[in-house]
Nucleic acid binder design. Structure first.
Length: 258
DNA sequence: AGCATTGTTTCACA
DNA sequence: TTGTGAAACAATGC
């Protein structure tokens, strides 16, 4: 699920429910999700501290820790979710899942926990994560930045939207959604876009992000359920078209999106 | 059995 | 330089 809206929701959960709780133990033994680190390294850095602040840029989130501790970076990958439980063990999606899909766990001294629950196991946990390759956050980017970064070069528009170095936070579903909302073909060349089209696209992007956060994720977008064979554009009724653009399966309305 | 998947990284190549 | 496509990563679901 995780694109920018899901990550923002996860950040808000951490912000409201996990800060200020003393860390008693950490399970960082998943050598894939916690790789470059050796088992125990993240644990040593966190035990005795508290999560103090939360941050997000694009799909990357991270926490500051107390006593000048390291930053704790968390990436949800393709299927990661954050579960936070209270001292009674309540909340945190306990019912949702197989415990073996908890890939990283912080246990608080009060008995609750923060877990990275990740079925597909492509998430990541890092100390002091490197964020230098990320472009400006898709929810915060200014009109001028957007026009400059998106409207340059000869890439297909969708490929550019998915480029986390150009703009951070847009994934495959959100890209299809905002392109449909904007009436723009994913195959349009970026240098071919007029300023008005870029401004319009950015407007739809911000609207779609807000809506997705409010409604529970990018899968609630209007076009998402129509990304299937034999489905039709909910506005004009044309049959949806499918192709690979920017390396990802892409669905769009060939009549309205030009 | 085979293919697809909301993400990232790397690499060969044009 | 820019951009593309494929593969690898891991694991599940249809």
């Amino acid at each position: 699920m995780p694109e920018l809206p899901e990550v923002e929701s996860a950040r808000q959960v951490v912000e409201s429910r996990a800060l200020g709780r003393l860390i008693a133990d950490v399970d960082d033994s998943d050598t894939y999700e916690c790789r470059p680190h050796v088992p125990g390294e993240i644990r040593s850095a966190l035990v005795g501290r508290e999560l103090a602040t939360t941050h997000r840029r694009g799909k990357a989130m991270w926490c500051g820790t107390s006593d000048d501790g390291p930053l704790l970076g968390i990436h949800l990958g393709m299927s990661g979710r954050i579960h936070v439980s209270d001292s009674e063990g309540r909340g945190g999606g306990r019912a949702a899942g197989k415990p073996e899909w908890d890939r990283f766990t912080i246990t608080f001294e009060d008995g609750g926990s923060l877990r990275l629950f990740d079925k597909r196991r492509l998430g990541r946990v890092r100390l002091d994560p490197d964020l230098t390759a990320l472009g400006p956050d898709a929810a915060e980017i200014t009109g001028e930045e957007f026009r400059t970064r998106i409207g340059k070069g000869n890439a297909p528009l969708k490929a550019r939207l998915l480029d986390q170095g150009a703009i951070a936070g847009i994934g495959n579903l959100l890209a299809d959604e905002v392109l449909w909302q904007s009436g723009l073909s994913p195959q349009r060349r970026t240098h071919d876009l007029a300023s008005e089209e870029l401004d319009d696209l950015r407007g739809h992007l911000h609207t779609a992000i807000r809506a997705a956060i409010q409604h529970g994720g990018v899968h609630t977008g209007e076009i998402i359920k129509h990304r299937r064979r034999d489905e039709h554009c909910p506005r004009c009724g044309a049959e949806m078209m499918r192709a690979t653009v920017g390396g990802r399966t892409t669905w769009w309305c060939p009549v309205e999106q030009t």
